[in-house]
Simulated assay, not measured.
Amino acid sequence: MAGSTRLEINFNRLLHRCEAMAAEKEQKNWRLEKYIGALQDQLADMKKAHSRPPQEALTEYHKKVELLKGLIELEKMPPGAEKALATERLQPVTSGPNNAPSRQLQARAKVQGQEDMRQELLGTKNAQDTDLRQRGLKGGSTDASDIDSLLQHHHRIQERLADEMLAHARALKQNVTSAGQVVREDTKKLGESTKLADTNYSKLQSESERLVGFTQSCSWWVWIMLLCVIITFLAMIVFMKIFPK
C-alpha cells in the first residue's frame, strides 16, 4: 500500500475489519451495518479527493462494499428461491491476493444459498437431518450407527419424494382424463346443436317458400275480386242507361 493516502489506509483497515466480521458470521451484528455505511462514506470521499487512488482500485473497492451490503441484505431475507436468486446476483469480485477474503465470502454465500434452496425443495430441513449432520461434522468423523441412520433417513426421504411424485402423476392423469371426457361431451353437444340448427333452418326455409306461394295466390285473388267489382259497377251503369226511370 505504498503511496496510499491516510484516507485509503483507514478505508482498507475498516474494510478488512468488516470482512473479518462477515467471515465470522456476524452479519446480524448492528455494528457491521454501521461500518459498511462508514465505508460508503469513505469511498465517496476518496472519489472526490485530489490524490485519489486509480480508477481500477476504486472499482474494486466499490465491488467489495457492494458485496458486504449484499451479505447484510441476504441475512434479512428468509430462506427460499428469492434468497438463492439474490445470492447469485451478488457483486462479483475479481481474482487476486488482495481480493481473496471477498471471494471467499461470495463463494460461501453462494454455497449456503444453494444448500438452503436444495433443503427447501427436498424438504430435508428437519430436526433429525440437522442433528445427524451436526453429529457427522463434529470432530470430522461419525460412527457406523450414525452413518446407517443418515443413510436410512435419506432413503426414507427419497421414498417419500417418489410417493409424492407418483401421487402428482396420478392426479395429473386423472385431470387429463376428466378434461378429455368433458371435451368429448362438449363436442357431442355441439354436434347435436349443429344438427338441430340445420333442421330448424330447413324447416324455416320450407315455411318461407310456402308463405311466398300463399302470398302470390292471395295477390291473384285480390286482382280477380277487384276486376269483378269493376265489371259489376260498369254493368250497373249500363243497366241504368238502358232502363231509365
Rank of each mutant, 00 (worst) to 15 (best):
K64E: 09
T87S: 02
V238F: 04
P244T: 05
K188D: 05
M240W: 06
E115W: 12
A171F: 07
E24Y: 14
F233C: 15
A107G: 06
G96E: 08
L68V: 11
I9V: 10
K34V: 06
K110Q: 06
E8P: 01
E207V: 05
S95N: 04
W220Y: 12
W30E: 15
V182R: 12
E159N: 10
G213T: 11
G80F: 02
T130P: 09
K245A: 03
D143T: 00
D198N: 11
H153W: 10
K173H: 09
C228E: 04
S4L: 09
R170N: 14
L74R: 03
E82K: 09
R108L: 13
K189F: 15
N98I: 08
E75M: 09
A81G: 01
I147H: 02
L161E: 08
E185C: 06
R103S: 14
T94F: 11
S202M: 03
G139A: 00
S145F: 05
I224H: 09
T232A: 12
L122I: 03
W223C: 08
Q119G: 13
P97M: 01
L151V: 12
R184Y: 13
A20H: 08
G3Y: 01
A23E: 07
I237H: 06
L227T: 11
N12W: 08
S178V: 15
C218G: 08
L74F: 06
Q55C: 10
Q27V: 12
H16Q: 13
G70T: 04
G80I: 02
K203W: 15
G180A: 13
E75A: 14
T232F: 06
E192C: 06
I36F: 03
A2D: 06
T194C: 03
T124E: 06
D163E: 15
H168W: 08
Q216Y: 00
K125R: 15
